[in-house]
C-alpha cells in the first residue's frame, strides 16, 4: 500500500504546472481552462470507532486519491477520480482480536461539469455549474478472507454502476472564496447488496491571511485559512430488506490551510464530526485527516 501510494503521489508531483482553486474536501469546484489539465492528489486517513457493541470494532482507512480534471471547452470539464484504498477493520471475535483488511484500487468516478453561468469583475469571478457522471465498479467487491466474504464496509468497491448528479456555485475574489456544491449518487446495487444512495453537501470558504497586499508585477503567492462544512447523508443499504445498521447523516467541520503559488497548491485539512446521526450499530467517525497538492499543465 505504502509503495503504491508513494508512486501515485510521486507521479502527481513530477508533473509541472499551476494549481487550481476550490475547497479541500470536494473536487468538483475545480475549474480548468480549455485544454488545461489539473492534477490533484490527496492522502487521507479516516479513523472510525465508538463501537456501540461489545465487539470493540475500530476501522482505519488510508486513501490516496488522484483526480485528473481536463478542460474540454472553455465551460466544460471532464473529471476522473481514482482512489487507492487500504482498509483495516479490527474487531473481537471469540475473545480473539481479528483484523479484516483490503487494499487496492477503489471505484473510479467519471463525470462532466458544465458551467452555465459566469460573471467576472476585476479580481473576482462568480460561477455556477451542473455536473453529471458515473461511479464505475472498478474496486474489488467480492474479496474474502479466512472469516469469509469481507463485510460491505471493508470492500473496495460496490460492484455497481452508479449515476451521480450535482450543482456547484463558487464566488472567488483575491481575498476570499465561498463555494457550495450538492451531489446526489444513486446506488444501483450488485449481486445481493445495494448500498444506500449518497447525498453530499459541501460548503467551503477561505480567506487570504497572507500577504496583506496582492502582488503586482511579481509572482503571486497566498496563504489561505479554510473552513468547510461537509455533510454526508446515506440511505440504508438493501439486501432483501433494508439493513438496519447502515445509513445516516454526518456533518463535518473541516478547518484547513492552503498555500498557493502560480504553479502549485499545497493543502491540509482535518475533518471532525459535529453532527452524527447513524443508524443501528454503525461505527462513528473519529476524524479524517487530509493532505494534498494540486498542479496544472
Amino acid at each position: 500500500m505504502r509503495r503504491n501510494a508513494i508512486l501515485i503521489l510521486g507521479l502527481a508531483f513530477l508533473l509541472h504546472g499551476g494549481p487550481a482553486f476550490s475547497a479541500i474536501n470536494t473536487d468538483i469546484a475545480l475549474n480548468p481552462a480549455k485544454g488545461q489539465t489539473i492534477l490533484r492528489t490527496q492522502y487521507s486517513r479516516t479513523r472510525k470507532g465508538d463501537d456501540p457493541t461489545d465487539q470493540n470494532r475500530s476501522m482505519t482507512v488510508d486513501a490516496v486519491k488522484l483526480v485528473v480534471v481536463h478542460g474540454i471547452t472553455e465551460s466544460t470539464a471532464g473529471f476522473l477520480a481514482v482512489p487507492y484504498l487500504d482498509k483495516d477493520l479490527r474487531t473481537v471475535s471469540g475473545g480473539q482480536r481479528v483484523s479484516r483488511e483490503a487494499s487496492g484500487i477503489g471505484d473510479l468516478k467519471l463525470f462532466l461539469k458544465a458551467r452555465l453561468w459566469r460573471k467576472d469583475a476585476p479580481g473576482a469571478t462568480t460561477r455556477f455549474a451542473l455536473l453529471g457522471g458515473l461511479k464505475l465498479p472498478t474496486g474489488e467487491d467480492d474479496e474474502s478472507d479466512a472469516q469469509g466474504r469481507l463485510p460491505p464496509a471493508v470492500r473496495l468497491g460496490s460492484g455497481s454502476w452508479d449515476p451521480l448528479a450535482g450543482i456547484v456555485f463558487t464566488r472567488q475574489t483575491q481575498w476570499y472564496e465561498i463555494s457550495q456544491d450538492l451531489v446526489y449518487q444513486v446506488n444501483t446495487g450488485h449481486d445481493d447488496l445495494q448500498f444506500g444512495d449518497f447525498f453530499q453537501h459541501n460548503t467551503g470558504a477561505w480567506v487570504r491571511v497572507w500577504p496583506a497586499e496582492s502582488a503586482e508585477w511579481s509572482t503571486p503567492r497566498a496563504l489561505h485559512a479554510v473552513l468547510e462544512l461537509n455533510g454526508v447523508w446515506q440511505t440504508k443499504h438493501r439486501s432483501g430488506g433494508t439493513i438496519k445498521d447502515s445509513g445516516g447523516y454526518t456533518l463535518f467541520l473541516s478547518p484547513g490551510v492552503q498555500y498557493v503559488t502560480s504553479r502549485w497548491l499545497l493543502e491540509a485539512s482535518v475533518q471532525v464530526p459535529i453532527v452524527e446521526s447513524l443508524n443501528g450499530n454503525e461505527l462513528g467517525t473519529d476524524y479524517n485527516v487530509v493532505v494534498g497538492a494540486r498542479t496544472t499543465f
Binding site: P19, P122, A124, T125, Q172, Q174, T219, P220, V260, T296
Partner: peptide, 12 residues
Amino acid sequence: IDGLSCPFCVFN
C-alpha cells in the same frame, strides 16, 4: 482581464 482572482490564474 476580469476574473483573475487567484495566484494560479496568472499561470492559466
